[in-house]
Computed example of a mutant assay.
Amino acid sequence: MRRVIAAGVALAACAVLFGAAPASAAEPLQLTVSLDGRDINGNTVTIDPAKSAELSVTAINNSDSVVRVRSVRVSGVALALTFFSYDTTMPFDVPAKSRVTRTLVLDFTDLGGQAIGLLPTTVDIVGAQREDLGSVSTVSDVRGSLWSVYGVFGLAMLVITAFLWATALLALARHRLAPNRWRRALRFLPAGIGTGLVAVITLSVLKLVPPEPAIEIPVVIGTAAIGLILGYLTPHPIPPLPPSSTPDDPTVDLRTRRLENTTEGFA
């Protein structure tokens, strides 16, 4: 069971470290996006699930050909996992060397059960072949519930990390860790990784720092290194005592002698 949980934490860490999308080719459209009249580029926007929001998208086509747009997508990603996504089909063409503005109303009612806190958010223009034609990134302050998908994910990571630390420390207290230092270090590695993931999610839910790759990767790598160092520096386990040669039963190996009565004659 411990190995399964440790593998799950390690996979989540791999998603954080290697899950960022590779750099794509130059996008054919430049976008300017505003939410309720406020430009989202470089700003933190507030999303209240109890209210709808007006999203205005201006697509600028600097190429010599028409670009056909199929839909607009708004998505929030943390730890390389998508926690909410809204796709609105809105076909329109952007002629060459021109710009087109479209406005749509987004209903975020379901968002309260999907996310909470600061989340990196992207607005994408999607083409007819579902290719990305342009995008703008921002940070959303989602006023959702702690029992949302993102909040429950953070609580689950907290429980798993506490379990990993408890099992590692209990093995240390019972002198059951491996004699090899590097094996002891690897025993503490999943707990260190889990601590980093919990720290990233907690900072996000408390609306202190968004879980962006520039924050996620150093935090997770740092806590993983701390876990390795702690495991490496743990004391060598006390070897088990050799079996005692003294029998436990005091009645074993007792020697008995038969006492014989002798009679002596008297002269």
Score class of each variant (00 low, 15 high):
6 A>T: 00
226 I>L: 15
123 V>R: 01
89 T>P: 05
253 D>M: 15
75 S>F: 13
68 R>H: 15
70 R>V: 04
195 T>S: 09
223 T>L: 03
31 L>K: 08
46 T>F: 10
70 R>C: 05
139 V>S: 04
250 P>V: 09
156 A>D: 03
30 Q>S: 13
180 N>I: 10
111 L>H: 07
211 P>T: 00
42 G>L: 13
8 G>S: 15
166 A>N: 07
254 L>T: 15
170 L>F: 05
199 A>T: 14
53 A>G: 12
257 R>P: 00
136 V>S: 08
146 L>D: 06
131 E>K: 04
27 E>G: 04
20 A>S: 15
185 A>R: 01
8 G>N: 10
191 A>G: 04
102 R>T: 13
36 D>K: 02
23 A>P: 09
245 S>M: 14
150 Y>Q: 02
99 R>W: 06
261 N>F: 11
111 L>D: 04
159 V>N: 05
259 L>G: 06
15 A>V: 03
240 P>M: 14
175 H>W: 13
187 R>D: 05
17 L>A: 07
255 R>Q: 13
137 S>Q: 13
180 N>E: 14
190 P>D: 05
128 A>W: 05
127 G>Y: 04
186 L>F: 12
96 A>F: 09
11 L>A: 08
228 L>H: 05
152 V>C: 04
224 A>P: 00
1 M>H: 06
85 S>V: 03
103 T>Y: 11
101 T>L: 08
167 T>W: 05
22 P>E: 14
229 I>G: 11
194 G>K: 00
214 A>C: 05
35 L>V: 11
221 I>C: 11
240 P>N: 13
120 P>K: 07
166 A>R: 06
177 L>F: 01
211 P>D: 02
138 T>I: 09
129 Q>V: 03
95 P>V: 06
86 Y>E: 07
235 P>V: 07
26 A>L: 08
204 S>A: 13
245 S>C: 10
22 P>F: 13
1 M>G: 03
167 T>R: 05
56 S>G: 11
